[in-house]
Simulated assay, not measured.
Amino acid sequence: MLLWREKIPDTWLPQIRANLAPVLLDHAYLERKAATTALNLEKYEELRDHLSELNAIAIEELQHFELVLRLLRERGIPFGHPKRSPWISGMMNAVRKGRKQQVIDHLVVCALIEGRSCEKFQILAEGVRDLDAPLADFYASLVESEGNHYASYLIMARHIDEPEADRRLDFFLDLDAQLIRVPNPSPMLH
């Protein structure tokens, strides 16, 4: 996977463990957004050869969204309004304008979101087992999918322009390190 330049703060898992309901709600929004993002990427001419792959990602993300919605229903957690993630907003705000630059940046950011999700789901699979074994199993079941999405997005960016994709990956890894150090008082996955 990735060699992150900053680890997840030690305060993240305790905050998540103490707030599983809002975290599940946040997770539902993230899965829905991931599905729509995969479909929105289809607007780029540079990704015309990847439409089936993007559709497959969108379908899988919608399936995950439905699974999280089921967990919310089972636990009596109402589906309310999403909170914006400062980390995701910070990453997306750095996406450059201009067709080729924008698509490469967008793909790299999507890859890093999926990579952080993969990492965090692994942590949650172990870190909430004593509180909620079915939820821990659920998070463990998502790890491989998130890793595959990370790889798919990064490969797509590299197919467009590998040296530029790698330069932007370097840039966004630095930005990730800055953003992840900023304390977030809200219990969120990202």
Rank of each mutant, 00 (worst) to 15 (best):
S152I: 01
E53L: 15
L67V: 11
R32N: 12
R32Q: 01
L41S: 06
I104T: 08
Q63H: 01
H27N: 01
V128H: 05
Y153N: 10
Y29K: 02
D10Y: 07
H106D: 15
V109C: 07
N40V: 00
Q178I: 09
L20F: 10
N19I: 00
L175H: 03
R167E: 12
V143G: 11
V143E: 01
T36H: 15
M1L: 14
V103Q: 02
R99D: 14
Q15N: 03
L54K: 09
A157I: 07
A133C: 07
H81G: 08
P82Q: 05
M188N: 05
L2Q: 06
L154C: 03
R167I: 01
D130M: 01
S52R: 08
A177Y: 11
H81S: 05
L175E: 08
E114F: 11
V95P: 08
V109F: 07
D174E: 08
L189F: 06
D26S: 04
Q63K: 07
L54A: 04
V103P: 09
R84F: 03
H149R: 10
F138D: 03
R5V: 00
Y153Q: 01
I8Q: 10
F138T: 05
D10L: 11
K120Q: 13
S152M: 05
I123F: 08
I180Q: 03
Y139D: 10
K97I: 14
S186H: 12
Q178R: 14
P187E: 04
H190K: 09
M1Q: 07
S186K: 01
L124C: 05
S186Q: 02
E6I: 00
P22S: 06
P78E: 11
D161N: 15
V103D: 10
L24V: 02
L179A: 02
E31T: 05
E61R: 11
L25Q: 09
Q63V: 11
R167C: 04
H81Q: 09
A58C: 12
A133N: 08
M91R: 04
Q15I: 02
Q122A: 14
M1A: 12
V103M: 08
Q101K: 13
H64E: 07
